[in-house]
Design a protein around this nucleic acid. Sequence first.
DNA 1: TGCATATTTGCAGGAACTGCAATTATTGTT
DNA 2: AACAATAATTGCAGTTCCTGCAAATATGCA
Lengths: 221, 221
Amino acid sequence: MGIAAAEPLPRGLSPQDTLRSRKQAATRLAIRRAAIELGLAHGYDSVTVDMICNASGVSARTFFNYFGSKEGAYTSPRKPLPGDAALTAFIAGGSSGVLTGLFDLIAGTFVEAESSLELFQARHRLIQQTPELLGREKERISETEEIFVGYVMERFHHDGRTVRDTPDLADEARMLVALVSGALRFALQKWAAGNFSDDRAHLVESASALIKRITGNEHWP
Amino acid sequence: MGIAAAEPLPRGLSPQDTLRSRKQAATRLAIRRAAIELGLAHGYDSVTVDMICNASGVSARTFFNYFGSKEGAYTSPRKPLPGDAALTAFIAGGSSGVLTGLFDLIAGTFVEAESSLELFQARHRLIQQTPELLGREKERISETEEIFVGYVMERFHHDGRTVRDTPDLADEARMLVALVSGALRFALQKWAAGNFSDDRAHLVESASALIKRITGNEHWP
DNA sequence: TGCATATTTGCAGGAACTGCAATTATTGTT
DNA sequence: AACAATAATTGCAGTTCCTGCAAATATGCA
């Protein structure tokens, strides 16, 4: 599954590269493109599933096989989870902070395995215009929180922290993930509003600077 | 509208206390009760609007007049906004921090003008069991973010801060609201999981302590 | 008491969605 | 190359949610 595709492999060695899977990917993309274009042209609420199907050449039943719901054609294609290398680096930590590292880790999942940056940008343009989709997209950040809490706990353990030393370590991990999720909601929205002109490092850096300022200024009780 | 109702007023002085408004309140409550009881008995997905209408004795058209959607019978009854006194206190600030004060301000809006604590708890029990409702409830925190950004800007101005001194003051306010929203998502879920046993002051205090610890431990870039 | 206004209800229809099974396309084996 | 197995697509009927419209009913006011 992690096989580099720099060179075509014999068919038997790559169960993922069949005519079927290629056609599926093309169909999925065609539906998404149609949905997004129609949305930008008419507004999300005016687009019907039938319109999308007509424009992409599939039946409505097939549409729902692919996306489950009308909204599914518009929201992130998969649950944002990090790659192995990024996760390993986060858990190993080093000089980077947990909060900053987690922010970077999750932000990295939003640069999607989307075949087209143009489509990614078009999708997000529509999302910014559509409160309902914006809310759903933000909710997606929350769907994987438990998984990230697990990663943070691994990081804590790697850093030598234990529940014996800090009984509410799990709550700390949860709060950390919640804070980062909150910060990401702001950061990603700003990123989209700036038409994705910032690179990821700058995203992380400016968010961290704001958080540092805010919490540094705080009069803690 | 802020008239204390400790004593019944003559009918003419209280346009809000008519037979109509009382019947509406009763109908709204009956629908909500029916919805929540059915949801706890059968699961949210198995409850139909017809079932709720049969149990509460209204027509489906009336249901949608009241709630707009099936989900609306389950989510928070109104956009959580603070009362005038709480808002004035937040903007005046004093010794409390902005982040902590904002957390407290928003947390206060979640003790709803619900006629029944028991119904509040039942609703939240169902929400915890229903990922879709949980996601929606969490996102409700975001619906009023712009308003809270405005309050934070007022607080900043009260504290003598200006855009001239801090050009990205608005971004700071936004990030602050986003962080607090994130923290609230965790804190409210924990509160509900503990069956609402903590009082608000403890909620604020434990959340603040965690945030302080996390950000104090952080290796900022 | 009668009229104006607000609320509830009934109804038809559109849109999203689901279960089921037939049809079609692709894959694997001989 | 032929055929069987498997996967994907499609057609179809029905349910559910939701909306617009207008008639019926309840309440408020002069």
